[in-house]
Write a protein that binds this DNA or RNA. Sequence first.
RNA 1: GCCCGGGUGGCGAAAUCGGCAGACGCAGAGGACUUAAAAUCCUCUUCCCGGAAACGGGAGUGCGGGUUCAAGUCCCGCCCCGGGCACCA
Length: 711
Amino acid sequence: EWTLRNIAAMKKTHRRFAFSYDWDREVSTCEPEYYRWNQWFFLKMLERGLAYRKQALLNWCPKCATVLANEQVVEGCCWRHEDTPVEQRAMAQWFLKITDYAERLLNDMAKLEGGWPERVLTMQRNWIGRSEGAEIDFHLVDDARPIRVFTTRVDTIYGATCVLIAPEHPLAETLLDAAGKSRAKAMVDARAGRDPGDIEKEGFFTGKYAANPFSGEQVPIWVANFVLMGYGTGAIMAVPAHDERDFEFCRKYGIDVRPAIRPTDGVLGVEPGLKEAFTDYGVVENSGRWSGLPSADARRRMAEYAEQLGFGKAAITYRIKDWGISRQRYWGTPIPVIHCPKCGIVPVPENELPVLLPDRIEITGAGESPLASVPGFVNVTCPRCGAAARRETDTMDTFIDSSWYFYRYCDARNTSMPFDPAKIAYWFEIDQYIGGVEHAILHLIYSRFFTKVMHDIGLIRNEEPARRLFTQGMVIAEGAKMSKSKGNVVGADMLAEKLGADTARMFVLFAGPPEKEVDWRTEGAEGIYRFLGRVYRFVTRNTPAPERGGASDAKVLRKLHQCLRKITEDFESRWHFNTCIASIMELVNVLYAEEENLSPAVARECSEKLALLLAPFAPYLSQEIWDELGGTGPVFRQPWPPFDPELAKEEEAEIVVQINGKLRARVHAPFGTAKERLEELAMEKVQAQLEGKQVVKRITVPDKLVNLVVK
RNA sequence: GCCCGGGUGGCGAAAUCGGCAGACGCAGAGGACUUAAAAUCCUCUUCCCGGAAACGGGAGUGCGGGUUCAAGUCCCGCCCCGGGCACCA
């Protein structure tokens, strides 16, 4: 940060530089003041209908004894306990309506293009999962009740040969007999915690029929285990001829496969020759008045038609679901509401915030929040009617804390607001944010959501938190990601203990570019230790520097300024600190080689610059050297040293001479030597190899290369 | 299955815009210093062929093609590894 600030100041470009570090080490999110503002935000959202409570099937981690958000379930397991499958539990829980923001979260990604890694944007796009289609009502033949299905391909509706509902679909309750219900229940249970790819498609006929509103045709209604209640309407029309999953299902149960789309340049597939579903767009066929239309037109017009006749409409479905924030943990911000038997859900008045955690509690892990067993916390009076009431005992997901901590940074001691909007207007957006990819669809989507909510409340002007995002690679130790929560960070600590913090830090930076994943090995660390020793020895034996001739001064100064240039440029752009360190090593190697011919002034200059160059990588040694040299104060108070492009310039250009693209020789010439002269020099040099050949073409890149094409 | 990354010496890696492949470091070999060892300093270290050596020649960036005077880098087709998403209708 010191280096970047200084470079920015030097170039007078970036006026502001804000950096974010791991939040739970910086702003303390478990302080009463932080709770207060978490709760304040929650109440604002409640006011706006963005926070709500509902009974739902939720992901439950038995180890954490709490529910989790969808984003926190990884391959059917808890994100903190990767081998513990989550269970489904029906509970009343608090949600934040992130789905209201799905469209904006998606559209505003255009602003992040270029500044955020494409990978992260793609992951968010997939997670939001916008899908355009139509909702269409099929009607029960018996009593005309509608079954609403979602489809992206209305154009295939004449090929629908059955309607499939999810086993937990509300209609199942009324359509099925006792045996059917228990089969449906078994399907739901069999699905829990398993990889969907491993589950075979299964279903059974409900005995009922529904009418296709377009064709009037009556098709059977089946319960199918691969239809998800949580997506779309929980019911689909199966078009086996044009959907792979439907095809597999219908073939298995002998349900009709009937084509309704033909390839644009082909013919309609006809039974029984159909071996697989044709899922591309094409031309609508066998579909009454719609036949002959291209798929894209039919999709649009059929949705409009359904809307006119009142049995459907164009619809957009998102994969993202509302953010479940209730946790049955002790450690978290209490959700500031009171349940009154008369008034229902009553928000805690703002002047009573923050609601704090009780001190003495017992953690039972019994499935209810630990707070529920503290009568002094639970038993309250309703702020509205004064009747005896119960305080909400769930606490908030800690991802709430991390969603806005970086705003709090700018005004951490404010006690009348979460922060002063004027300060945020000055600092934000964040110029550069740094974090791991593992947060692509967790923290990085939540904090974008929070930013938009705060914008809508009128607190901030920016609609995105960070202009640029850098995702550092993970450190892998014994095949597992190194992390605080896993507690396997010992490698780095032990290295620091053995070879010092400077060596440990520099070794990690030297291992590879920061965006790349690294396997944790300590084998090369001695090399860094040795290098730091070499630096220290050079400085100490040259302070004061002995009187010597300066024959190598120019050469050494050139290397020094090349190194300064390299690091300055790299800090501004790529952050490839491994090559920065390599270039300091090169400099030190030159210093060792040329030491005997170094004037005292240049030796001194190099020592000073080494202290500054090393400061970002090895701060302790750097300060040590700085003191040794008689420098005052912290080395970090010094400005970053500018490089002199003139001094960094090579004396002469080295010109590569190629024959037919193969390296044959090198010649030296002053920079800017004319093309003709370079070619002359090159021909001269490789004369022997041109014997008996004819030069048909000459390609010359000034100051770089001459390529002779010969026959 | 779909969408991203990536594949370069014994190892970590470098080559930033199509222009010297392997910088820098680890490991290894040899030498200097030392009674000796450690530490330090110096030299060598992609592979193959020739040479006592200096050096010379050839091959080479996962595989097969292509574009170009010139390809690790661009294009087409494969293989392998890592990550993300995944009965999302």
